[in-house]
Design a protein around this nucleic acid. Structure first.
Length: 196
DNA sequence: TATTGGATCGCC
DNA sequence: GCGATCCAATAG
């Protein structure tokens, strides 16, 4: 099977489906100093107006506007004043939904990732949403970037479908009943998954 | 305009 | 367990 970049129709599907299907795909960042990529190990879904864990739960704001746009664009925001999180927008325009990318298994450009992270251990390079953004050099200027273009995208390299584990999402205890939704997905038994 | 707290991380 | 560190969101 040839390597193929995911197209907009892939992202414009139900968010839980996209969150599962992204596991085992490769996130690719074309950086001025070289190409970096890694296999997606862990994702979380944030879905619709009702989900109190989602930034969109209180409607359209300046920060979350990209979530209301068409699928296949990057929603990147700063959290805790120092970390960035990368999401891919899903579903139809005007319906706010996205998948948070939470961990990668580094494959290409490992030395460049090490330089950005100032860490050596392969397992610590991209094991968390903030860490993977730091490794790949993703910050707020990436918000609204088209993932169907050439700077940042996701590829299917024909990996066999992984064994998937499902749990509740991390860090959303404030979300009332929505904190218990089983909307976190990760590749079973993989050491690169973020701590829970 | 002022206050509050977070889809995290790494060290204590 | 806890502090770092900034800014979006909300209230006044």
């Amino acid at each position: 099977m040839p390597t193929v970049k995911l197209v907009r129709d892939f992202y414009a599907q139900p968010t839980l489906h996209v969150a599962r299907q992204l596991l085992g795909k490769s996130l690719v960042r074309v950086h001025p100093q070289g190409v970096m990529s890694g296999v997606i190990l862990e994702t979380e879904a944030y879905i619709g107006f009702e989900d109190q864990a989602s930034h969109a739960s209180r409607g359209l704001t300046r920060r979350n506007a990209v979530m209301f746009g068409p699928a296949g664009f990057a929603y990147v925001y700063l959290i805790y004043g120092m970390h960035h999180c990368l999401n891919v927008v899903t579903e139809r325009e005007a319906y706010p939904a996205a998948v948070l990318i939470r961990a990668l298994q580094p494959s290409e450009g490992v030395e460049l990732m090490r330089a950005q992270r100032r860490k050596q251990d392969l397992r610590l390079l991209a094991n968390g949403p903030g860490n993977l953004c730091q490794a790949l050099g993703i910050e707020r200027s990436f918000n609204g970037l088209d993932l169907c273009a050439d700077a940042l995208f996701i590829e299917d390299r024909g990996c066999s479908p992984p064994d998937i584990m499902v749990t509740t999402r991390v860090g959303v205890d404030y979300a009332g009943p929505w904190k218990d939704m089983p909307w976190r997905f990760y590749i079973a038994g993989h050491p690169g998954v973020s701590k829970h």
